[in-house]
């Protein structure tokens, strides 16, 4: 079959209509579309763009400082530090949480500093937060601020946020020591949840932290919250 004849360029409004209709359960489509052309990338990284993902939101601007941190710590993409600093922004970080278990963050280079997106919920505007993980409609945030709980589970749609209790001393987050990771998930025990709306109205969630010790053991901290009840436990394994 001969290749299709080239289309005359579509106006921005029309391209946006198309991008908006990429399937909501496949955010990778959006990532790939961002690389099709400068026009498409500009549209996708525009704060006014309506992301085609049901539980999605523009997150933070990635600053020069963040890029530096990223280069230092490139192996762990969930630990990209993000700080709100429009004046020195070099790229936009979009955190997308999807109905599937896989949350993600994408970083899209931008050519100009961006203003805070109108759709950005107030809680996200606070400085000093970095996103650890995003799944099932929630985001696990971390801060080193002294006045706040270090970890917060945040629902970007409703702006509800829930501070996690202090971690056991053994697991205190201390910068670069060991390799850290964390995840927030829906805690639906029956496996019947479609994860489309489970983060609203205080649905149950669980948070898991891992720390890889230098001696090859793994610490695992699990916290489950169902309504107002919390259960937490620390497990340590040398035979992970």
């Amino acid at each position: 079959m001969p290749p299709p004849p080239p289309w005359p360029p579509l106006g921005e409004e029309l391209v946006e209509e198309i991008l908006f209709r990429l399937p909501p359960d496949d955010p990778a489509s959006l990532v790939r579309a961002a690389l099709v052309s400068k026009q498409w990338r500009r549209l996708i990284s525009d704060p006014g763009f309506r992301l085609p993902v049901c539980n999605s939101f523009y997150f933070y601007l990635n600053t020069k400082r963040a890029r530096h941190d990223l280069e230092k710590n490139s192996a762990d993409s969930t630990a990209i530090p993000q700080r709100w600093d429009p004046s020195s922004s070099t790229s936009l970080v979009v955190a997308i949480t999807t109905p599937s278990a896989r949350g993600l963050m994408i970083r899209i280079p931008t050519e100009r500093p961006l203003l805070p997106p109108a759709s950005c919920p107030p809680f996200a505007i606070g400085r000093g937060w970095r996103a650890f993980d995003a799944r099932h409609g929630r985001v696990l945030l971390h801060t080193i601020s002294w006045t706040r709980a270090p970890f917060v589970v945040w629902d970007p749609i409703s702006d509800d946020h829930h501070e996690l209790p202090a971690l056991p001393p053994l697991l205190k987050f201390s910068g670069d020591e060991g390799s850290w990771s964390g995840a927030v998930l829906c805690a639906d025990a029956n496996g019947t949840c479609d994860h489309l709306d489970c983060c609203h109205q205080g649905g149950p969630f669980r948070v898991v932290f891992f720390r890889d010790q230098i001696n090859e053991s793994v610490d695992l901290y699990l916290l489950i919250r169902i309504r107002c009840l919390e259960r937490a436990g620390l497990y340590s394994s040398a035979t992970w």
Binding site: P3, P23, S29, R32, L35
Partner: peptide, 19 residues
Amino acid sequence: VADMIKGKSPMEIRRTLGF
């Protein structure tokens, strides 16, 4: 059009739309 480009790489999208 969104259905035509989903699952495709940036290059494939460009070819599909004749960029």
